[in-house]
Structure formats: C-alpha cells, structure tokens
Design a protein around this nucleic acid. Sequence first.
DNA 1: AGCCTGACCTAGG
DNA 2: TCCTAGGCCAGGC
Length: 112
Amino acid sequence: MQEETFYEKVYAVVRLVPVGRVTSYGAIAKYLGAARSSRLVGWAMNVCHGEQSDVPAHRVVNRIGMLSGKAHFETPTAMQSLLENEGVQVIDDQIQNFSQVFWDPSTELGWD
DNA sequence: AGCCTGACCTAGG
DNA sequence: TCCTAGGCCAGGC
C-alpha cells in the first residue's frame, strides 16, 4: 500500500465507485487523508487520462456535483453520456439527485 | 532552481 | 447568501 503513490490510491478508490454512483475529489482526498490536497486528485485524473487505466474518471466530480472535468474527456459530452448510460441523470453538466448518487468512500468504506 | 498553472476545497467579508 | 482570497501537492516551462 505504501509503495503505491497518491495516484495509485486515487485510482483504487475511483475504481471502487459502484456503477450509477459518483464521488467528489475532496471525498477521495479526505479518504486518503489529504483533504487539503483535493487538487492532487484532479491532477491524478489528468495523469490517469493519459494512462490506459480502468479508472472511471466520469464518476468523479466536484463537491457540487458538476462535471467540471468533462472538458478534459475525449469529447465534452463523453462524461455526461457515460453517467447517463449508468443511470445517473445529468442536466446542463449538473448531476441531478446528487445527494442520492453521491458515493463517499469515507462513509461507505469507512463503515467497514 | 524558481515561478505559474491546475478536473478543488474551506474560510472570511 | 454571494463573492473573493488563500492553501494544498505535483508537473511543466
């Protein structure tokens, strides 16, 4: 575990995100014990984008549930399309029922 | 080696 | 309640 870098940890958590659910950068960072390093999560996603990793970056949004990273996908609509394909309703780059589809690792995984 | 930027979050006015 | 400022770590120039 310690051998894994911050990115590896981020990827691991993102990969644990169930289908039809989304999480936030801050939630992941907080779960990793780096709540103040939420930017690194976004940076990790950027690196992940270049990698062929099976990291569902489309399931990661900001704290308000907005598809802030959609611009970094292959296409501006790829993120929304992927989320809608998984059953997540997205309107105007904004996830609907965000509180319901939100998946917090600190809560879900934290409860053991 | 130093400065700037970035898919963010929290706090203060 | 909305807007502005600061801070965090890593990568690029």
